[in-house]
Design a protein around this nucleic acid. Structure first.
Length: 492
RNA sequence: GGCGCAUUCGUCUAGUGGCCCAGGACACCGCCCUCUCAAGGCGGAGAUCGCGGGUUCGAAUCCCGCAUGCGCUACCA
């Protein structure tokens, strides 16, 4: 039998990482088994719809590389894939449940229910619907409904005994029926609740494995009873754990990005997020952590999922993002850098950027950035028409603090030597500056830092000689000269 | 309150009765490399396997209690 799994989000906003991780696992399992992964939109709560959500959901999946075989956009043999377009099925199921006395109409108003709960609270009784409308004779209920009275349909849970089901990860779980009340399956607006929609659709759409967040565990026995009352086989349940914030609480915007699309906007690589999410709660062998999509698919087994919550470790994600940046093909990464720089560089830098220049930069910075946005601060001096010399104190640094006169002198020597250079390339510049250091008695490192500050304006940069090559001879000498001026002016 | 699920280094995890006085990864610390910063290499520190009882020759691994955390207890999903 070929497996069929689904991702069934509500269109109430952007999918967050916890939610999408479940989707990723369902996808990986379906692909591993050569089965089907489909997308179904659960829009049965008309009051919570957020326009554009479906597109954002699809964009999130696509960005992560999770392709679906059936869905609202591509259709499929079990469509439609949007629950608001499947109302007939829920009506049909409700009719059958009503006819078999597995369900009944409830005419209680919200006020009635509130009063009931109030009384239960006062009497220290466990809250829950008391089943009063179950006593209404079917004919009377029918008549009241026909007369236009507003009602919901509730499932008639068995009052005694227990309900047992199997969660693939946790084994058998048993609930006492008397603790489960008669829950609503059809709302007064004619839409089903999640419970009914789940039982109807996951059967009609031939879902073999139901993966969902473990907040659904307590309602699983209701679903099992629903399936049975409908005469449908119960699917295999896989309840997945939540993702927590670094403080052990719920993951929220406070902890950084939360939705998948935010990570995309922040410049994370989709391969990195995919990899990171795949192993947050799953491990192929206890050692391997860097895995391609294909490797995840090959190694994945849904039975191997961990059952406890996991803290989202942003630092590890960043590390992994760096791993993927370094592993990327250079020309591809170069284009990524180019686009990021075009986004982040000051407005006066002309676009499009010189791709040859970015290509030359790429190997210099790829090992120095973990996150895309870090690239700009590292190389902006290569694009700025003017780089101001740092203030005197910074130029002197620790090395020249107590011998301030030596600094401008060293720069002068460097300028003279560089000016006389025939070829302007990194190797020649290095050779030249090392010679200057030797002649002047400066420590190479001290001289290089001085030049770095003068030419780039900062003390953390890509390698100096390559940087100077890219800055060019004229600009390099100019900046060196102005740094010397700063040192002399301040001194005088 | 009731019901349920969970509990291995700071974090993510490996581990399914002896190979574990617990392995890997991120983070952290040190050394090496080195023009800065990274990357890389090597090494270190870090977990009485939540606690208490049992079962067993032997338990992180099986059983029972307890504690803690989280979830559910809607005409939301």
């Amino acid at each position: 039998m070929t497996v069929r799994l689904r991702y069934a989000p509500s269109p109430t906003g952007d999918p967050h990482v916890g939610n999408i991780r479940s989707a990723l696992w369902a996808w990986a399992f379906a692909r591993h088994e050569g089965g089907v992964f489909y997308l179904r939109i659960e829009d049965t709560d008309q009051t919570r719809l957020v326009p554009g959500s479906i597109e954002r959901i699809e964009a999130s999946l696509r960005w992560l590389g999770l392709d679906w075989d059936e869905g609202p956009d591509v259709g499929g043999p079990y469509g439609p894939y949007v629950q608001s377009q499947r109302l007939d099925g829920y009506r049909e199921a409700t009719g059958r449940l009503l006819a078999s006395d597995n369900a009944y109409r409830c005419f209680c108003t919200p006020a009635d229910l509130e009063a009931m709960r109030e009384a239960q609270r006062a009497a220290k009784q466990p809250p829950g619907y008391d089943g009063r409308c179950r006593l209404i004779p079917a004919a009377e209920a029918e008549a009241r409904a026909a007369a236009g009275e507003s009602f919901v349909v509730r499932f008639a849970m068995p009052r005694e005994g227990t309900t047992t089901f199997t969660d693939l990860l946790r084994g058998e779980i048993t609930y006492e029926n008397r603790l489960l009340d008669d829950f609503v399956i059809l709302k007064s607006d004619g839409f089903p609740t999640y419970h009914l929609a789940h039982a109807v659709d996951d059967h009609l759409m031939a879902t073999t494995h139901v993966t969902r967040g473990d907040e659904w565990l307590p309602s699983a026995p209701r679903h099992v009873r629903l399936f049975e009352a409908l005469g449908h086989p119960v699917p295999i349940y896989v309840h997945t754990p939540v993702i927590l914030g670094p403080d052990g609480g719920k993951l929220s915007k406070r902890h950084g990005a939360k939705s998948v699309l935010e990570y995309a906007e922040d410049g994370y690589l989709p391969d990195a997020l995919f990899n990171f999410l795949s192993i947050l709660g799953w491990s192929p062998d206890g050692a391997t952590e860097i895995l391609s999509r294909q490797q995840v698919v090959d190694a994945f087994d849904i039975k191997d999922l961990v059952v406890h919550p996991a803290v989202f470790d942003t630092q590890k994600l960043e590390w992994m993002n760096g791993v993927y940046m370094r592993a990327m093909a250079e020309d591809e990464l170069s284009e990524v850098f180019a686009r990021e720089l075009e986004r982040a560089l000051p407005a006066d830098v002309v676009r499009p950027l010189d791709r040859a220049l970015v290509a030359a930069i790429t190997p210099l910075v790829r090992e120095r950035v973990k996150l895309l946005p870090e690239v700009t601060a590292l190389v902006d001096f290569l694009f700025a028409s003017d780089v101001a010399a740092p203030p005197r104190d910074q130029l002197l640094g620790k090395a020249y603090r107590n011998r301030a006169d030596a600094a401008p002198a060293a720069i002068d020597a460097a300028v003279a030597a560089l000016d006389a250079l025939e070829a302007w390339d990194a190797a020649a510049i290095e050779e030249c500056l090392r010679a200057v250091a030797a002649q002047t008695g400066e420590k190479p490192g001290d001289l290089f830092m001085l030049c770095r500050l003068a030419v780039t304006g900062k003390n953390v940069t890509p390698p100096l000689f390559e940087s100077m090559e890219l800055v060019g001879r004229d600009a390099s000498l100019d900046r060196l000269g102005r740094a010397a001026e700063v040192l002399r002016a301040a001194a005088g």
